[in-house]
Design a protein around this nucleic acid. Structure first.
Length: 313
DNA sequence: CGTGTTTGACCGGCGC
DNA sequence: GCGCCGGTCAAACACG
């Protein structure tokens, strides 16, 4: 995540009646209200006050989130600087560790590590092809992506909800990590070739690292309560996240799930959209989508605009 | 009974 | 060629 190219995600909600009316004729404005899902609204003074208060609250929350994001960026940059220094000091050590990696692992490192998911794309190959024809796989590499999810430290499960339905087909303790690695296939297999590996981070046991291979060739199923029935799972579908727009560093999405209250509150209001490899533009789109599908945000926005219009009249 | 998980066995790639 | 290791299979098991 290169924060030098970090965009300002704050929302300018300080809409003046002039700008609104200049940009949009009144009829268009009303149509936009309808498109926001508001069919009618009363403009009573008390509700306006209430909604203005709500707007203030949302603005403050937005500001808070922006501050948190900037702190995360700063921490990331500091960490990255340290890593660069360390790597420049110990180049042979780095080489020796990577050379020990198996071929597939090293190819993973070279491949595009994109956001949480790949969504639907044209480069997917069938399961049979990817399994039985390794030479073709060399030509058409399955898209690899990685996602990190912070879970409760007491949570020992390896279930990571990401909107898709997975079937666990194996678990293994690997050499470099005492925590077992779980192997999942998309439940639409074999028609959908996507696989997922989930393992806890060596450094941070509360961090779940999921590696996705391939791309879903089907739309995302309806949100499920749990993929395993255990009830202890981490969800990727509707959580605030930070993404790394850097072109050099692996693009890994890190999510903090330890504070789950807000997730729960907004769970039904978000479309799970994590299939955006282009960051930050798509991140912004994702955030915008999340906001525009949030009824609370819509109400606050409509209230703010209507309130200003009333003041103007 | 259908579906999903667990877990030991097996397979194949890679390094020595 | 051998051993190590990650990935996968499949029978047994659990659960609703």
């Amino acid at each position: 995540m290169d924060c030098s190219s970090y965009i300002n995600t704050s929302l300018d909600l300080n809409i003046t009646p002039y700008t609104v009316q200049q940009i949009l004729p009144k009829k268009d404005l009303e149509n936009n209200f309808f498109s926001l899902g508001i069919t009618s609204f009363s403009l009573k003074d008390e509700s306006i006050d209430e909604l203005e208060e709500e707007l203030k609250r949302v603005t403050a929350e937005n500001k808070k989130l922006v501050e948190m994001l900037s702190v995360v960026c700063e921490n990331y940059n500091a960490l990255r600087t340290h890593l660069m220094e360390y790597m420049s000091r110990n180049p042979e050590k780095e080489l020796s560790t990577t050379s020990k990696k198996r071929k597939s692992e090293s190819s993973n490192n070279n491949s595009n590590l994109i956001g949480v998911n790949n969504g639907n794309s044209e480069t997917s190959s069938t399961d049979e092809e990817s399994c039985k024809k390794p030479r073709e796989e060399e030509i058409i590499k399955p898209k690899i992506s990685r996602a990190c999810v912070r879970t409760d430290a007491s949570d020992t499960g390896l279930i990571m909800k990401d909107g898709y339905h997975w079937r666990k087909y194996g678990q293994k303790v690997t050499r470099d990590n005492p925590c077992p690695r779980a192997y999942f296939k998309c439940s639409f297999a074999p028609s959908c070739p996507v696989k997922k590996k989930v393992q806890r981070s060596v450094d941070d046991q509360s961090m779940l690292v999921a590696t996705y291979e391939g791309e879903h060739n089907h739309p995302q199923p309806a949100p499920l309560e749990s993929t395993s029935g255990s009830g202890r799972s981490a969800s990727l579908s509707s959580i605030p996240c930070s993404a790394s727009p850097s072109s050099t560093a692996p693009k890994v999405v890190t999510l903090d799930l330890t504070n789950s209250k807000s997730n729960k509150d907004s769970k039904n209001n978000f479309e799970p959209r994590k299939d955006s490899p282009k960051v930050p533009k798509n991140l912004v789109e994702q955030m915008a989508t999340s906001l525009t599908t949030d009824p609370n945000f819509r109400a606050a926005l409509v209230a703010a605009i209507s309130g200003r219009l009333m003041h103007n009249n």
